[in-house]
């Protein structure tokens, strides 16, 4: 008869007295193999059962027995979910998870709303907040008609103001060079003191094609909001000092 491996032999030595007692998988395996390979295992079980029976027959003094009339007295108090939730370690873990979730959500939201040229648009949003009316060359025309000016005077093709903003009255215009954005056309508008920007779309480094996107995208920064759209390799950006809803009158509902 083969000897049991050391680990299983140790488990078999501690085998539960009652065969039906709940035990883990390793113990069940040890018992099963001990029954086959350990010749005195059945004697051990009979010995243990007789011992346990003798222990159970130990008389309990009346003074002690009366404590167990209501056994719940000796039962450890269970933690309620409130006291568990209020434990400092659980609270700390909960707060940490909440902060992580918020950061992940913010990053995810940023990724969802970002678009090619967003960094340049943010930079120009800062320009909008610092530009004074006196910096514009004065004009008195609809913003949509300035396309010809850009083509004829500055040779900027496709610098078209979209129909949504083309009817706004322009009060000033300027064209300047920016290190990152390239040639930027900036239009001052009387209504809501909006400013409109037109600048080249970012180009793909491999194909050289302008990176475009569909529909209007929005940016918010230091109390200013921008609505951006790409068309024919040129980004159009309308900026206003206020919330996104200020564009509701001009843009189609999403």
């Amino acid at each position: 008869m083969k000897r049991l491996p050391r680990g299983l032999r140790a488990l078999a030595d501690c085998a539960p007295i009652d065969d039906d007692a709940a035990c883990d998988r390793r113990m069940r395996a040890a018992i099963s193999r001990a029954k086959k390979r350990k010749k005195d295992f059945s004697r051990q079980q009979a010995f243990d059962q007789a011992m346990a029976k003798l222990v159970k027959s130990t008389p309990v003094p009346a003074e002690i027995a009366e404590w167990f009339v209501n056994e719940k007295l000796a039962e450890g108090a269970k933690r309620s979910w409130r006291s568990t939730a209020g434990h400092p370690a659980i609270l700390a873990i909960g707060i940490a998870l909440a902060v992580i979730a918020v950061v992940v959500w913010i990053k995810f939201d940023e990724q969802m709303h970002t678009f090619p040229g967003a960094a340049i648009a943010k930079k120009l949003l800062t320009v909008a907040s610092t530009t004074r009316v006196s910096q514009f060359g004065p004009v008195k025309a609809d913003a949509g008609t300035l396309t010809d000016l850009f083509v004829m005077k500055y040779r900027l093709e496709h610098y078209d103001v979209p129909p949504e903003f083309s009817q706004l009255r322009a009060i000033g215009v300027r064209v300047f060079d920016d290190d990152e954005a390239g040639r930027v056309a900036q239009i001052g508008v009387a209504e809501k003191r909006m400013q409109l920007f037109l600048f080249p779309a970012r180009r793909d480094s491999k194909t050289g094609q302008p990176e475009e996107f569909q529909g209007w995208r929005f940016l918010e920064q230091e109390g200013w909001t921008a609505a951006v759209r790409a068309r024919q390799g040129v980004l159009f950006m309308a900026t206003v000092r206020g919330p996104k809803k200020d564009f509701a009158a001009y843009l189609p509902k999403e």
Partner: peptide, 10 residues
């Protein structure tokens, strides 16, 4: 504790 038969070996 073993012959009290109330606890598992663990």
């Amino acid at each position: 504790l073993f012959y009290l038969d109330e606890f598992s070996y663990r």
